[in-house]
């Protein structure tokens, strides 16, 4: 892995009296995918907007390439509904100064890789959610950016289109682009090289997915009825528990935890610190 070129250090962003982000540091390296996870209002979009220069930091540093080397897919996909697929792509290319044979080459490659060749005359507004996101991603990639920033690329996208989107994103990373994306789903974040989980503008957990899972400590398990332990939550038809005690609760069995469990445990511990109760 190359040294990190881009990213943020001790970044805080206030909107008036409201703190949207507090002391967030995240390195973005060429060839790697970083995922920012968290719910609505956690600060994900503010982090992206600060990184690409749409929001000024209240404090801290932002490192990004020049504007023409950034590709940005907004949550709204950025596709113009009254332009065709081809016109949308050409418009994005012009905005980045990609013309002539460079554009023709990028156009052919991106339409082929997104599977949108047959749809080049369709209006952006008539595309399905998945096709619109793929076009938005093609528009963000048309100038071969060194930093690619994607705001919830898979929201509202079906599993088939999502698989294709991930293919395009991993191809871009493999070709040397640094990728930062946001998601509300941890199974998706878990496929990235680095995950930064935000909660109420602060980092709840950050690191490589495997390391975050290994770092939880204690023991976790499942039970068919609510166990008598400090930390419990629902997962499917069963209950989960987590404890630092040596003995697991009666009538339960240990199970290996995943990233989703690791984040639930961190969030429950934070809630307990804030409110003095586990749930």
């Amino acid at each position: 892995m190359k040294a990190s070129q881009w990213g943020v250090t001790d970044l805080s962003v206030d909107y008036g009296r409201r703190t949207a982000l507090r002391d967030v540091s995240l390195d973005l390296s060429s060839g790697t995918i970083a995922a920012v996870a968290g719910g609505d209002g956690a600060g994900k979009t503010t982090l992206l907007r600060a990184l690409v220069g749409l929001v000024p930091p209240t404090s801290g540093d932002v490192r990004r390439p020049t504007e023409d080397a950034v590709g940005y897919l907004p949550a709204s996909s950025g596709v113009y509904p009254d332009l065709t697929v081809e016109e949308n792509l050409r418009f994005a290319a012009r905005a980045y100064g990609v013309r002539g044979s460079d554009y023709q080459a990028a156009r052919a490659e991106l339409l082929e890789r997104t599977g949108l060749e047959g749809a080049s005359d369709r209006l952006g507004g008539n595309l399905s959610g998945g096709m619109r996101q793929k076009l938005g991603l093609a528009m963000a990639l048309v100038h071969n950016p060194s930093l690619l920033v994607l705001d919830e690329p898979s929201t509202g996208v079906d599993p088939v289109s999502r698989k294709e989107l991930w293919g395009l994103v991993t191809d871009a990373a493999r070709a040397g682009t640094a990728v930062l994306l946001t998601t509300t789903y941890l199974d998706e974040a878990g496929r990235s090289d680095v995950v930064c989980v935000l909660d109420a503008g602060e980092v709840l957990l950050q690191g490589a997915p495997d390391a975050l899972v290994r770092g939880v400590g204690g023991s976790m398990g499942e039970a068919s009825t609510e166990p008598d332990t400090h930390f419990t939550w629902r997962r499917g038809a069963t209950w989960r528990w987590w404890t630092t005690d040596a003995t697991p609760p009666a009538g339960s069995r240990r199970v290996a935890l995943d990233l989703q469990d690791a984040v639930v445990i961190a969030a429950l511990r934070k809630r307990e610190q804030l409110e003095g109760v586990p749930r």
Binding site: G39, D40, T155, T184, L186, D199, R234, R235, Q260, A267
Partner: peptide
């Protein structure tokens, strides 16, 4: 859709 992991866990509860 769109909520954080604890809120999701609460809703599924």
């Amino acid at each position: 859709s769109g909520v954080d992991v604890l809120a999701r866990s609460d809703l599924w509860g």
